[in-house]
Design a protein around this nucleic acid. Sequence first.
DNA 1: TAAACATATGAACAATCATTCATATGAACA
DNA 2: TGTTCATATGAATGATTGTTCATATGTTTA
Lengths: 124, 124
Amino acid sequence: MSGGLNTQTEMEYCDTHEIHRERLQKVNEGMPDEEEISDLSDLFKIFGDSTRLKILFVLFEEEVCVCDLAELLNMTQSAISHQLKVLKQSKLVNSRRDGKSVFYSLADDHVRSIIAQGREHIEE
Amino acid sequence: MSGGLNTQTEMEYCDTHEIHRERLQKVNEGMPDEEEISDLSDLFKIFGDSTRLKILFVLFEEEVCVCDLAELLNMTQSAISHQLKVLKQSKLVNSRRDGKSVFYSLADDHVRSIIAQGREHIEE
DNA sequence: TAAACATATGAACAATCATTCATATGAACA
DNA sequence: TGTTCATATGAATGATTGTTCATATGTTTA
């Protein structure tokens, strides 16, 4: 990624039409800064993987340990563990150790709303 | 990806604790089928890129042609065009030709809600 | 019809990423 | 303390993906 919004600096418009100043102003007002857009795309990247989505759907119901997640989703303990690390780093899940097991749970309910909105769109 | 949920078939539980039938049942009820999860992750993948997010934020304000998008975002016409194709294939944007230019616009307002939910989560 | 402009697209390349494998850490128990 | 179970993690690998470059398609105008 090289640059962000370009409204202040000189630029060559399309030959047959112009971008008007007011329009540029309007676009600029609604556009979050580079950092927020980056954070936002990072967040959505997390949801952009089937395995992570499945983990989250399981956690919608209740907290589950790594071992059970692996069996439920029919995947390697290692694969699950790697993804749980990603989910934890993004603060989407919390973990709690109980003896040998580590139990993971949803961090908050924003996750539900985001995924719910996505599902609504899918249904068309 | 090898397999999906695993609740019917025989499986080895963790040695020190068991997954109970009722819990499995509950998880199964809330879990969408493999295809919906795949569609859902594909949808979120679209939002998981800064360039595409920026394009969408611009389109939140008004319809814009490829040329103007490229200048606004300070990117190649080709890069923008490729991403617009992705957005169009996912039915997130519509296009309309006007002479030499092609104008893109938001397909529906679900996009707004999904992104709005994401932003809420970011703010912490 | 030729030239110029706007957009689309295929191939190539670099970067990112999910999974696997091997192994390390941590906890319980004999 | 040694063994076993549960989880974490680093390196390697194959697959996916965003951008660039070159070029094709489509539209207008001289």
